[in-house]
Design a protein around this nucleic acid. Sequence first.
DNA 1: GCCAGGATGTCAGTTGCTGACATCCTGGCT
DNA 2: AGCCAGGATGTCAGCAACTGACATCCTGGC
Lengths: 213, 213
Amino acid sequence: MARWEPDARGRLEKAAMELFRERGYARTTVEEIAARAGLTERTFFRYFSDKREVLFSGSADLQGALVAAVAGAPADAAPLAIVATAFEAAGAALEAHREMAYVRARHALVSEHAELRERELIKLASLATAVATALRARKVGEPAASLAAEAGVAVFKVGFERWVGEKKARGLPVHIREATEALRAVAGDAGGEADRVGARAAPRSEAKRARAR
Amino acid sequence: MARWEPDARGRLEKAAMELFRERGYARTTVEEIAARAGLTERTFFRYFSDKREVLFSGSADLQGALVAAVAGAPADAAPLAIVATAFEAAGAALEAHREMAYVRARHALVSEHAELRERELIKLASLATAVATALRARKVGEPAASLAAEAGVAVFKVGFERWVGEKKARGLPVHIREATEALRAVAGDAGGEADRVGARAAPRSEAKRARAR
DNA sequence: GCCAGGATGTCAGTTGCTGACATCCTGGCT
DNA sequence: AGCCAGGATGTCAGCAACTGACATCCTGGC
């Protein structure tokens, strides 16, 4: 299939990651990436629409795992439970087939370059709309589906960040679950009495703040 | 202050918006924008770091309003209530000083160009971290602050989308509040019994799905 | 009326990205 | 074995976004 070595795409990804770590993202040129992979700049752009995109090949798999998990959840599960479980499953898959060192290096890169964070955010937004669509296919109504999906992404973001920032590695799914619980604690309280700024003092709020950690 | 006419920045924003609507975003050149504003391409890039950035001058105000509202919320309010109220206030401010036609035109532009959606998403993410920081200053603990902030952004996104997509215009704050309620309904239910895919059937889930609309 | 300093212009150059077209290799067919 | 179709790669030219360095201009204060 390939003209020389096989797996041009994989070679490009590997070369890109190496160079980004050696010289930094901004000082690496697409031409250099292609050269290290034994290819041409033009060929790079046949595989990736963007210079940035070379770092995001995994997101398609993630989205697939996520949608499958949502579709396969038990029929009577509540939306947020479905979504949280789906993100845990996707997180487990991610953890299973990527080295921790790679995950950290990539995360560091993305964190310090705004253009890459933008791309990451749009991928996450894409996950959210896919999850929302999958929920709607399960007859979850409309503000609820989008909100549950966005909540899932929020929980994933927070869980992921804590997972990566931890030395002693507990699993990613554990962190996602904890974040889900924290979200329930924050969002689940009756609330609504303070809808207007300047709402009168309400005695029970001590207990709430305590629960929110 | 300015060399010729005053308010170079404003002229650039106006020219950009006009041209984007006339020829579309992609077919408009920075040089053209600058020319219509009576300036040079180089000057454009002195005011805006990016071609995209010319559409996002409002987000700084939004962030300011948001942070102020969080800081000024009553001392005993629960995190999500604080955040929801703050986004309602910021939404009211936005609604107050932008014409609906402008909002819709800008929204249409952003929606159909991925690069612009990326920028929008990173602005929203920036709002979220600012809100989380403001919450932490109020002694809200850490997973809670980030999650409440992300929840606020989710609620804003959903509320905004519904507001813009509506002919008969109710206010943006109303939509945000409705989204907040829907989120509470989705996230607030006890949940957690379906944390593993394959959890046993639980009878009370009918009521839940009904409540989630 | 002069002068410091900020705003603008000019110019040259790099890099991301694209279209058009040529070339090459591979696998299948006879 | 030899040939052929078609996908993968290369080559080339070009546009537009963006940047650094330096020149020039206007404005407000003295």
